[in-house]
């Protein structure tokens, strides 16, 4: 049984007069299992962010259904329950923080849920430790780096003790160091706390560490599978103007030139292992 189920979801933005109704999702069906790390790939306008916002009832499908832990997102009364279970982290860390002190910001979610103050304190401390920002709990957010701010935003979601976190391009506005920090945090939460992760990104390299990669194109699921399966379909991805990780690309091109190489290299280490015998011979 999937934790999140999207069943033939279509979505269209309400059109103004004289405008055509713009359908962004054309019948997407997708399941996310509990504890899974799913990377949702696609370029701008592929509908990946729109789909993600369906996972915690921020957007409601125009057609089809979305279920979270068996709860129908169309049911207005369940909205808070659903958002407690599935947290959404947005792209710009500056625009997600509410309070001017780190720990008070992290407490915002649990406060909204009406949790008792001593329990909030415990959760806030645990959440800040989980993202390794406990030492900064009394700082002002604007003095932190982008990666640190994004980790605070993640802590704010963890403090609600969700089963799943959906991250909508959380690294798009960060420098490489901040990106590493955030990715490491996400992987740690998935591994150690068993939190289901849906990571939306257009950096192919970030998708390599996922359990499953789902590629979206033009409001449909183009292909999905383990990173190895998906990134060996280089031709398919290229036909849809999508990139593959650089290591994969290199090996693929060399194979195209007729060199005897393994079918797919996902990261630099695999690429090195593949090329070493070739260079030595």
């Amino acid at each position: 049984m999937d934790y999140i189920t999207a069943d033939k979801v279509t979505f269209a933005y309400e059109a103004d007069e004289n405008e055509e109704r713009l359908e962004v999702l054309h019948g997407v069906s997708l399941g996310v299992r509990k504890g899974e790390f799913v990377a949702l790939l696609g370029h701008n306008g592929s509908g990946k962010s729109t789909l993600a916002k369906h996972f915690n009832a921020m957007l409601l499908p125009s057609g089809g259904k979305v279920y979270v832990d068996g709860l129908d997102t169309m049911d207005e009364a369940l909205k808070i329950e659903i958002r407690r279970r599935v947290g959404l982290v947005l792209q710009n860390p500056d625009n997600q923080l509410v309070a001017s002190i780190v720990e008070e910001d992290v407490a915002f979610g649990p406060e909204n849920l009406g949790i008792a103050p001593p329990e909030i304190r415990k959760r806030v401390d645990a959440a800040l430790k989980a993202v390794e920002m406990y030492d900064y709990r009394l700082n002002a957010p604007y003095k932190l780096s982008g990666g640190q701010k994004q980790r605070i935003a993640i802590a704010g979601i963890i403090a609600m003790e969700p089963d799943c976190i959906v991250l909508d391009e959380p690294t798009a506005m960060l420098d490489p160091r901040g990106r590493d920090e955030v990715l490491r945090t996400i992987h740690k939460l998935n591994r150690e706390n068993g939190i289901t992760i849906v990571l939306i990104t257009h950096y192919m390299d970030e998708a390599v560490g996922a359990d499953r990669v789902v590629v979206m194109d033009d409001g449909r699921v183009l292909t999905q599978g383990t990173p190895r399966e998906v990134f060996s379909r280089v031709r398919l991805l290229k036909d849809h103007q999508l990139d593959v990780p650089q290591a994969t690309e290199l090996v693929w091109r060399l194979r195209g030139e007729g060199y005897d190489l393994p079918e797919c290299a996902l990261d630099i280490d695999e690429c090195v292992a593949a090329l070493e015998p070739l260079l030595n011979s």
Binding site: I80, L88, L90, G109, N112
Partner: peptide, 27 residues
């Protein structure tokens, strides 16, 4: 305005629904 829109969404994601039934960490 763009920030306000983003923030409103982030607040909703964190189950904000007004002052009703809200608690405070710091008493």
């Amino acid at each position: 305005f763009r920030r306000a829109y983003d923030l409103a969404m982030a607040m909703e994601c964190r189950c904000y629904h007004g002052g009703e039934g809200r608690t405070k960490m710091k008493q």
